[in-house]
Design a protein around this nucleic acid. Structure first.
Lengths: 198, 198
DNA sequence: GTTATCTCTGACACCTGTGTCCAAGTTAGC
DNA sequence: GCTAACTTGGACACAGGTGTCAGAGATAAC
Protein backbone atom coordinates (compact mmCIF):
# COMPACT_ATOMS: atom_id res chain seq x y z
CA UNK A 1 0.00 0.00 0.00
CA UNK A 2 1.07 3.64 -0.25
CA UNK A 3 1.99 3.13 -3.86
CA UNK A 4 3.66 5.67 -6.01
CA UNK A 5 0.69 7.36 -7.66
CA UNK A 6 1.35 6.14 -11.12
CA UNK A 7 -2.00 6.49 -12.86
CA UNK A 8 -3.92 9.62 -13.56
CA UNK A 9 -4.88 11.85 -10.70
CA UNK A 10 -6.34 9.33 -8.22
CA UNK A 11 -6.27 11.07 -4.92
CA UNK A 12 -5.82 8.47 -2.13
CA UNK A 13 -7.10 10.47 0.80
CA UNK A 14 -5.34 10.36 4.14
CA UNK A 15 -8.42 9.36 6.10
CA UNK A 16 -8.82 6.34 3.86
CA UNK A 17 -5.30 5.34 4.78
CA UNK A 18 -6.08 5.82 8.44
CA UNK A 19 -9.28 3.82 8.21
CA UNK A 20 -7.56 0.94 6.51
CA UNK A 21 -4.85 0.96 9.13
CA UNK A 22 -7.36 1.16 11.96
CA UNK A 23 -9.25 -1.78 10.54
CA UNK A 24 -6.12 -3.85 10.19
CA UNK A 25 -4.93 -2.97 13.67
CA UNK A 26 -8.28 -3.83 15.16
CA UNK A 27 -8.45 -7.04 13.17
CA UNK A 28 -5.02 -8.05 14.43
CA UNK A 29 -6.13 -7.57 18.01
CA UNK A 30 -9.60 -9.04 17.74
CA UNK A 31 -8.88 -11.91 15.38
CA UNK A 32 -5.65 -12.60 17.20
CA UNK A 33 -7.54 -13.45 20.35
CA UNK A 34 -10.86 -14.53 18.86
CA UNK A 35 -10.23 -16.11 15.50
CA UNK A 36 -13.95 -16.58 14.89
CA UNK A 37 -14.81 -12.94 15.43
CA UNK A 38 -17.32 -11.51 12.98
CA UNK A 39 -16.69 -8.61 10.68
CA UNK A 40 -19.14 -6.59 12.71
CA UNK A 41 -17.00 -6.91 15.84
CA UNK A 42 -13.83 -6.02 14.02
CA UNK A 43 -15.49 -2.92 12.62
CA UNK A 44 -16.69 -1.96 16.06
CA UNK A 45 -13.19 -2.39 17.50
CA UNK A 46 -11.85 -0.22 14.73
CA UNK A 47 -14.45 2.43 15.42
CA UNK A 48 -15.77 2.13 11.92
CA UNK A 49 -18.87 0.94 10.12
CA UNK A 50 -18.96 -2.61 8.85
CA UNK A 51 -19.14 -1.40 5.25
CA UNK A 52 -15.94 0.53 5.69
CA UNK A 53 -14.16 -2.71 6.40
CA UNK A 54 -15.34 -4.01 3.06
CA UNK A 55 -14.24 -0.78 1.46
CA UNK A 56 -10.65 -1.70 2.24
CA UNK A 57 -10.72 -5.48 2.38
CA UNK A 58 -12.91 -7.18 -0.22
CA UNK A 59 -13.84 -10.14 1.96
CA UNK A 60 -13.32 -11.60 5.38
CA UNK A 61 -10.86 -14.27 4.23
CA UNK A 62 -8.71 -11.61 2.60
CA UNK A 63 -8.76 -9.57 5.77
CA UNK A 64 -7.71 -12.63 7.72
CA UNK A 65 -4.89 -13.15 5.27
CA UNK A 66 -3.71 -9.59 5.78
CA UNK A 67 -3.85 -10.06 9.53
CA UNK A 68 -1.89 -13.25 9.27
CA UNK A 69 0.69 -11.49 7.19
CA UNK A 70 1.09 -8.82 9.79
CA UNK A 71 1.28 -11.26 12.68
CA UNK A 72 3.69 -13.53 10.93
CA UNK A 73 5.98 -10.62 10.21
CA UNK A 74 5.90 -9.63 13.84
CA UNK A 75 6.57 -13.18 14.92
CA UNK A 76 9.49 -13.58 12.57
CA UNK A 77 11.00 -10.35 13.78
CA UNK A 78 10.59 -11.30 17.42
CA UNK A 79 12.13 -14.69 16.88
CA UNK A 80 15.00 -13.27 14.95
CA UNK A 81 15.67 -10.90 17.80
CA UNK A 82 15.83 -13.89 20.12
CA UNK A 83 18.97 -15.08 18.34
CA UNK A 84 17.93 -18.69 18.16
CA UNK A 85 21.13 -19.71 16.43
CA UNK A 86 23.46 -18.38 19.11
CA UNK A 87 24.67 -19.91 22.35
CA UNK A 88 23.88 -23.35 23.68
CA UNK A 89 20.97 -25.10 22.05
CA UNK A 90 19.34 -25.42 25.43
CA UNK A 91 19.68 -21.73 26.15
CA UNK A 92 18.45 -20.88 22.69
CA UNK A 93 15.49 -23.17 23.20
CA UNK A 94 14.52 -21.33 26.35
CA UNK A 95 14.75 -18.05 24.49
CA UNK A 96 12.62 -19.40 21.66
CA UNK A 97 10.08 -20.63 24.16
CA UNK A 98 9.94 -17.31 25.90
CA UNK A 99 9.24 -15.42 22.72
CA UNK A 100 6.90 -17.98 21.21
CA UNK A 101 4.93 -18.22 24.42
CA UNK A 102 4.18 -14.55 24.30
CA UNK A 103 3.32 -14.67 20.62
CA UNK A 104 0.92 -17.57 20.84
CA UNK A 105 -0.62 -16.05 23.90
CA UNK A 106 -1.34 -12.83 22.09
CA UNK A 107 -2.31 -14.43 18.81
CA UNK A 108 -4.38 -17.52 19.34
CA UNK A 109 -5.16 -17.14 15.65
CA UNK A 110 -1.82 -18.68 14.80
CA UNK A 111 -2.94 -22.01 16.20
CA UNK A 112 -6.53 -21.87 15.06
CA UNK A 113 -7.63 -24.76 12.86
CA UNK A 114 -9.51 -22.44 10.52
CA UNK A 115 -6.24 -20.77 9.67
CA UNK A 116 -3.74 -23.59 9.74
CA UNK A 117 -3.92 -24.00 6.01
CA UNK A 118 -5.77 -21.22 4.25
CA UNK A 119 -3.26 -20.93 1.53
CA UNK A 120 -0.20 -22.96 0.75
CA UNK A 121 1.93 -19.86 0.37
CA UNK A 122 0.84 -18.31 3.67
CA UNK A 123 1.30 -21.57 5.42
CA UNK A 124 4.80 -21.95 4.07
CA UNK A 125 5.77 -18.44 4.97
CA UNK A 126 4.52 -18.93 8.49
CA UNK A 127 6.30 -22.23 8.76
CA UNK A 128 9.55 -20.83 7.45
CA UNK A 129 9.58 -17.96 9.89
CA UNK A 130 8.33 -19.55 13.07
CA UNK A 131 8.72 -23.31 12.92
CA UNK A 132 11.86 -23.64 10.89
CA UNK A 133 14.07 -21.84 13.40
CA UNK A 134 12.89 -24.19 16.11
CA UNK A 135 13.52 -27.22 13.99
CA UNK A 136 16.97 -25.92 13.12
CA UNK A 137 17.61 -25.40 16.79
CA UNK A 138 16.51 -28.91 17.60
CA UNK A 139 18.86 -30.43 15.03
CA UNK A 140 21.69 -28.35 16.36
CA UNK A 141 21.01 -29.50 19.91
CA UNK A 142 20.81 -33.08 18.81
CA UNK A 143 24.08 -32.83 16.91
CA UNK A 144 25.71 -31.32 19.98
CA UNK A 145 24.41 -34.11 22.15
CA UNK A 146 22.29 -31.75 24.19
CA UNK A 147 19.00 -33.26 23.08
CA UNK A 148 18.03 -36.85 22.50
CA UNK A 149 19.00 -37.56 18.91
CA UNK A 150 16.61 -40.47 18.55
CA UNK A 151 13.57 -38.22 18.42
CA UNK A 152 12.35 -36.82 15.16
CA UNK A 153 12.61 -33.03 15.03
CA UNK A 154 9.13 -32.77 13.54
CA UNK A 155 7.68 -34.64 16.47
CA UNK A 156 9.51 -32.44 18.94
CA UNK A 157 8.12 -29.38 17.22
CA UNK A 158 4.61 -30.74 17.50
CA UNK A 159 5.13 -31.73 21.09
CA UNK A 160 6.47 -28.27 21.88
CA UNK A 161 3.46 -26.55 20.40
CA UNK A 162 1.10 -28.98 22.10
CA UNK A 163 2.64 -28.41 25.50
CA UNK A 164 2.50 -24.71 24.89
CA UNK A 165 -1.15 -25.10 24.14
CA UNK A 166 -1.70 -27.01 27.34
CA UNK A 167 0.16 -24.44 29.39
CA UNK A 168 -1.89 -21.68 27.85
CA UNK A 169 -5.04 -23.63 28.60
CA UNK A 170 -4.12 -23.95 32.25
CA UNK A 171 -3.68 -20.22 32.48
CA UNK A 172 -6.95 -19.57 30.67
CA UNK A 173 -8.73 -21.99 32.97
CA UNK A 174 -7.34 -20.19 35.99
CA UNK A 175 -5.58 -23.28 37.28
CA UNK A 176 -2.11 -21.77 36.94
CA UNK A 177 -0.60 -18.33 36.88
CA UNK A 178 1.25 -17.26 33.78
CA UNK A 179 4.54 -17.65 35.58
CA UNK A 180 3.71 -21.12 36.84
CA UNK A 181 2.60 -22.24 33.41
CA UNK A 182 5.71 -20.85 31.76
CA UNK A 183 7.87 -22.66 34.26
CA UNK A 184 6.00 -25.92 33.87
CA UNK A 185 6.27 -25.55 30.13
CA UNK A 186 10.03 -25.00 30.16
CA UNK A 187 10.48 -27.90 32.52
CA UNK A 188 8.29 -30.25 30.53
CA UNK A 189 9.82 -29.39 27.22
CA UNK A 190 13.37 -29.85 28.40
CA UNK A 191 12.39 -33.28 29.63
CA UNK A 192 10.72 -34.25 26.41
CA UNK A 193 13.75 -33.13 24.49
CA UNK A 194 15.92 -35.22 26.75
CA UNK A 195 17.92 -32.18 27.79
CA UNK A 196 19.58 -32.09 31.14
CA UNK A 197 17.67 -30.07 33.71
CA UNK A 198 18.80 -26.49 33.80
CA UNK B 1 -35.46 -45.27 26.87
CA UNK B 2 -37.45 -48.54 26.81
CA UNK B 3 -39.63 -47.47 29.70
CA UNK B 4 -42.22 -49.65 31.27
CA UNK B 5 -45.35 -48.56 29.40
CA UNK B 6 -47.01 -46.90 32.31
CA UNK B 7 -49.56 -44.60 30.69
CA UNK B 8 -52.57 -45.53 28.64
CA UNK B 9 -52.10 -47.53 25.51
CA UNK B 10 -49.24 -45.69 23.83
CA UNK B 11 -47.78 -48.20 21.46
CA UNK B 12 -44.06 -47.55 21.06
CA UNK B 13 -43.48 -49.26 17.75
CA UNK B 14 -40.41 -51.36 17.12
CA UNK B 15 -39.36 -49.42 14.03
CA UNK B 16 -39.33 -46.25 16.08
CA UNK B 17 -36.96 -47.93 18.46
CA UNK B 18 -34.77 -49.03 15.57
CA UNK B 19 -34.76 -45.57 14.02
CA UNK B 20 -33.78 -43.93 17.26
CA UNK B 21 -30.99 -46.44 17.72
CA UNK B 22 -29.79 -46.03 14.14
CA UNK B 23 -29.70 -42.27 14.56
CA UNK B 24 -27.77 -42.51 17.80
CA UNK B 25 -25.32 -45.02 16.34
CA UNK B 26 -24.76 -42.87 13.29
CA UNK B 27 -24.40 -39.77 15.42
CA UNK B 28 -21.79 -41.49 17.56
CA UNK B 29 -19.75 -42.36 14.52
CA UNK B 30 -20.17 -39.13 12.59
CA UNK B 31 -20.01 -36.68 15.48
CA UNK B 32 -17.24 -38.69 17.05
CA UNK B 33 -14.99 -37.97 14.11
CA UNK B 34 -16.50 -34.73 12.90
CA UNK B 35 -17.88 -32.82 15.84
CA UNK B 36 -19.22 -30.08 13.59
CA UNK B 37 -21.23 -32.41 11.39
CA UNK B 38 -24.68 -31.14 10.50
CA UNK B 39 -27.92 -32.88 11.30
CA UNK B 40 -28.36 -33.57 7.62
CA UNK B 41 -25.17 -35.64 7.50
CA UNK B 42 -26.07 -37.59 10.59
CA UNK B 43 -29.46 -38.40 9.12
CA UNK B 44 -27.82 -39.53 5.91
CA UNK B 45 -25.41 -41.75 7.80
CA UNK B 46 -28.33 -43.25 9.67
CA UNK B 47 -30.19 -43.86 6.44
CA UNK B 48 -33.02 -41.70 7.61
CA UNK B 49 -34.67 -38.40 6.78
CA UNK B 50 -33.59 -35.31 8.65
CA UNK B 51 -37.02 -34.95 10.20
CA UNK B 52 -36.78 -38.40 11.69
CA UNK B 53 -33.79 -37.30 13.67
CA UNK B 54 -35.87 -34.54 15.17
CA UNK B 55 -38.63 -37.04 15.82
CA UNK B 56 -36.36 -38.76 18.33
CA UNK B 57 -34.07 -35.99 19.47
CA UNK B 58 -35.67 -32.57 19.94
CA UNK B 59 -32.61 -30.58 18.99
CA UNK B 60 -29.03 -30.96 17.87
CA UNK B 61 -27.56 -30.09 21.28
CA UNK B 62 -29.67 -32.80 22.91
CA UNK B 63 -28.52 -35.30 20.34
CA UNK B 64 -24.93 -34.33 21.03
CA UNK B 65 -25.58 -34.81 24.71
CA UNK B 66 -26.92 -38.29 24.07
CA UNK B 67 -23.89 -39.10 21.95
CA UNK B 68 -21.59 -37.83 24.65
CA UNK B 69 -23.40 -39.98 27.18
CA UNK B 70 -22.88 -43.03 25.06
CA UNK B 71 -19.24 -42.30 24.37
CA UNK B 72 -18.47 -41.47 27.94
CA UNK B 73 -20.01 -44.73 29.08
CA UNK B 74 -17.88 -46.61 26.59
CA UNK B 75 -14.79 -44.75 27.70
CA UNK B 76 -15.41 -45.39 31.34
CA UNK B 77 -15.94 -49.07 30.70
CA UNK B 78 -12.77 -49.34 28.64
CA UNK B 79 -10.72 -47.54 31.24
CA UNK B 80 -12.11 -49.65 34.02
CA UNK B 81 -11.14 -52.75 32.11
CA UNK B 82 -7.60 -51.40 31.91
CA UNK B 83 -7.28 -51.74 35.67
CA UNK B 84 -5.63 -48.41 36.22
CA UNK B 85 -5.35 -48.96 39.94
CA UNK B 86 -3.38 -52.16 39.71
CA UNK B 87 0.32 -52.85 39.27
CA UNK B 88 3.09 -50.28 39.09
CA UNK B 89 1.97 -46.73 38.44
CA UNK B 90 4.20 -46.68 35.37
CA UNK B 91 2.70 -49.84 33.99
CA UNK B 92 -0.78 -48.60 34.75
CA UNK B 93 0.02 -45.34 33.01
CA UNK B 94 0.99 -47.18 29.88
CA UNK B 95 -2.22 -49.14 30.01
CA UNK B 96 -4.23 -45.95 30.47
CA UNK B 97 -2.44 -44.37 27.55
CA UNK B 98 -3.11 -47.32 25.33
CA UNK B 99 -6.81 -47.25 26.00
CA UNK B 100 -7.18 -43.48 25.97
CA UNK B 101 -5.24 -43.20 22.74
CA UNK B 102 -7.71 -45.45 21.00
CA UNK B 103 -10.66 -43.63 22.51
CA UNK B 104 -9.55 -40.15 21.56
CA UNK B 105 -8.63 -41.37 18.14
CA UNK B 106 -12.09 -42.72 17.54
CA UNK B 107 -13.91 -39.88 19.24
CA UNK B 108 -12.37 -36.55 18.46
CA UNK B 109 -15.59 -35.13 19.85
CA UNK B 110 -14.29 -35.71 23.36
CA UNK B 111 -11.64 -33.06 22.85
CA UNK B 112 -13.69 -30.67 20.81
CA UNK B 113 -14.00 -27.16 22.22
CA UNK B 114 -17.69 -26.97 21.38
CA UNK B 115 -18.29 -29.84 23.73
CA UNK B 116 -15.83 -29.27 26.53
CA UNK B 117 -18.48 -27.62 28.64
CA UNK B 118 -21.99 -28.02 27.32
CA UNK B 119 -23.42 -28.80 30.66
CA UNK B 120 -21.87 -28.86 34.08
CA UNK B 121 -23.28 -32.29 34.83
CA UNK B 122 -22.05 -33.86 31.61
CA UNK B 123 -18.68 -32.29 32.05
CA UNK B 124 -18.40 -33.64 35.56
CA UNK B 125 -19.45 -37.11 34.57
CA UNK B 126 -16.91 -37.17 31.78
CA UNK B 127 -14.24 -35.87 34.10
CA UNK B 128 -15.05 -38.36 36.78
CA UNK B 129 -14.87 -41.32 34.46
CA UNK B 130 -11.93 -40.46 32.24
CA UNK B 131 -9.74 -37.86 33.87
CA UNK B 132 -10.10 -38.77 37.51
CA UNK B 133 -8.56 -42.23 37.09
CA UNK B 134 -5.51 -40.70 35.46
CA UNK B 135 -5.16 -38.12 38.17
CA UNK B 136 -5.50 -40.82 40.80
CA UNK B 137 -2.84 -42.78 39.02
CA UNK B 138 -0.53 -39.80 38.92
CA UNK B 139 -0.86 -39.21 42.63
CA UNK B 140 -0.18 -42.85 43.30
CA UNK B 141 2.93 -42.78 41.17
CA UNK B 142 4.15 -39.63 42.84
CA UNK B 143 3.57 -41.09 46.29
CA UNK B 144 5.51 -44.19 45.27
CA UNK B 145 8.36 -42.06 43.98
CA UNK B 146 7.87 -43.29 40.44
CA UNK B 147 6.89 -39.88 39.11
CA UNK B 148 8.23 -36.45 39.92
CA UNK B 149 6.28 -35.30 42.94
CA UNK B 150 6.96 -31.63 42.32
CA UNK B 151 4.61 -31.47 39.35
CA UNK B 152 0.95 -30.70 39.83
CA UNK B 153 -1.27 -33.61 38.81
CA UNK B 154 -3.62 -31.28 36.97
CA UNK B 155 -0.77 -30.03 34.85
CA UNK B 156 0.36 -33.55 34.07
CA UNK B 157 -3.14 -34.43 33.00
CA UNK B 158 -3.23 -31.46 30.65
CA UNK B 159 0.20 -32.24 29.32
CA UNK B 160 -0.80 -35.83 28.72
CA UNK B 161 -3.85 -34.86 26.73
CA UNK B 162 -1.90 -32.26 24.81
CA UNK B 163 0.80 -34.71 23.83
CA UNK B 164 -1.86 -37.17 22.84
CA UNK B 165 -3.34 -34.50 20.65
CA UNK B 166 0.01 -33.82 19.07
CA UNK B 167 0.63 -37.49 18.41
CA UNK B 168 -2.78 -37.83 16.83
CA UNK B 169 -2.04 -34.82 14.70
CA UNK B 170 1.17 -36.33 13.41
CA UNK B 171 -0.70 -39.42 12.35
CA UNK B 172 -3.45 -37.38 10.73
CA UNK B 173 -0.85 -35.32 8.89
CA UNK B 174 0.80 -38.47 7.61
CA UNK B 175 4.11 -37.64 9.23
CA UNK B 176 4.06 -40.67 11.51
CA UNK B 177 2.47 -44.09 11.54
CA UNK B 178 0.08 -44.91 14.34
CA UNK B 179 2.69 -47.15 15.92
CA UNK B 180 5.41 -44.51 15.73
CA UNK B 181 3.13 -41.91 17.23
CA UNK B 182 2.04 -44.19 20.04
CA UNK B 183 5.66 -44.96 20.83
CA UNK B 184 6.69 -41.31 20.76
CA UNK B 185 3.73 -40.48 22.96
CA UNK B 186 4.60 -43.11 25.57
CA UNK B 187 8.20 -42.01 25.54
CA UNK B 188 7.41 -38.32 25.81
CA UNK B 189 4.89 -38.75 28.57
CA UNK B 190 7.15 -40.87 30.70
CA UNK B 191 9.78 -38.18 30.41
CA UNK B 192 7.38 -35.40 31.32
CA UNK B 193 6.23 -37.37 34.33
CA UNK B 194 9.82 -37.82 35.37
CA UNK B 195 9.47 -41.58 35.23
CA UNK B 196 12.48 -43.72 34.54
CA UNK B 197 12.63 -44.96 30.97
CA UNK B 198 10.97 -48.33 30.63
C1' DG C 1 -14.79 26.88 -2.33
C1' DT C 2 -15.12 23.43 -5.39
C1' DT C 3 -14.70 18.58 -5.99
C1' DA C 4 -13.68 14.06 -5.75
C1' DT C 5 -13.15 10.87 -2.15
C1' DC C 6 -14.56 8.69 1.90
C1' DT C 7 -17.74 7.21 5.60
C1' DC C 8 -22.09 6.37 7.28
C1' DT C 9 -27.02 4.78 7.58
C1' DG C 10 -30.16 1.68 6.01
C1' DA C 11 -31.70 -1.61 3.17
C1' DC C 12 -31.36 -5.69 0.67
C1' DA C 13 -30.12 -10.42 -1.46
C1' DC C 14 -27.98 -14.51 -0.38
C1' DC C 15 -26.41 -18.49 2.02
C1' DT C 16 -26.33 -22.17 5.49
C1' DG C 17 -28.16 -24.45 9.10
C1' DT C 18 -31.89 -25.20 12.55
C1' DG C 19 -36.30 -26.45 13.83
C1' DT C 20 -41.44 -26.86 12.65
C1' DC C 21 -45.56 -28.18 10.19
C1' DC C 22 -48.36 -30.83 7.22
C1' DA C 23 -50.16 -34.16 4.16
C1' DA C 24 -49.37 -38.53 2.02
C1' DG C 25 -47.70 -42.91 2.26
C1' DT C 26 -45.95 -47.08 4.89
C1' DT C 27 -45.82 -50.31 8.50
C1' DA C 28 -46.12 -52.61 12.97
C1' DG C 29 -49.51 -54.24 16.30
C1' DC C 30 -53.68 -56.07 17.51
C1' DG D 1 -57.89 -55.59 7.89
C1' DC D 2 -58.14 -51.68 11.04
C1' DT D 3 -55.74 -48.35 13.24
C1' DA D 4 -52.50 -45.76 15.34
C1' DA D 5 -47.70 -44.97 14.99
C1' DC D 6 -43.98 -43.91 12.14
C1' DT D 7 -41.32 -42.10 8.13
C1' DT D 8 -40.88 -39.10 4.40
C1' DG D 9 -40.76 -35.23 1.07
C1' DG D 10 -41.75 -30.60 0.59
C1' DA D 11 -42.36 -26.29 2.27
C1' DC D 12 -41.67 -22.83 5.47
C1' DA D 13 -40.09 -19.44 9.23
C1' DC D 14 -36.21 -18.01 11.49
C1' DA D 15 -31.51 -16.71 12.85
C1' DG D 16 -26.88 -15.26 11.97
C1' DG D 17 -23.42 -13.98 9.03
C1' DT D 18 -21.58 -12.27 4.49
C1' DG D 19 -21.34 -9.18 0.86
C1' DT D 20 -23.60 -5.41 -2.10
C1' DC D 21 -25.86 -1.22 -3.34
C1' DA D 22 -27.46 3.60 -3.19
C1' DG D 23 -27.88 7.93 -1.33
C1' DA D 24 -26.77 11.60 2.02
C1' DG D 25 -23.47 13.83 4.56
C1' DA D 26 -18.64 14.89 5.91
C1' DT D 27 -13.92 16.04 4.70
C1' DA D 28 -9.37 16.07 2.67
C1' DA D 29 -7.04 17.88 -1.37
C1' DC D 30 -6.36 21.20 -4.64
Amino acid sequence: MSEVTGGRRRRRRSDAERSAAAVLDAAVQVLGRHPDAKVEQIAAAAGVARQTVYAHYPSRPLLVAAVLDRITAEAVAALEAADVDGGTATEALLRWLDVAWRLFDRYALLLHPSVTAIDKADSDRQHAGVIAPLERLIRRGQAAGEFDGALSPAWLVSATIALGHAAGGEVAAGRMTTAQAAEALRHGILRVYGARES
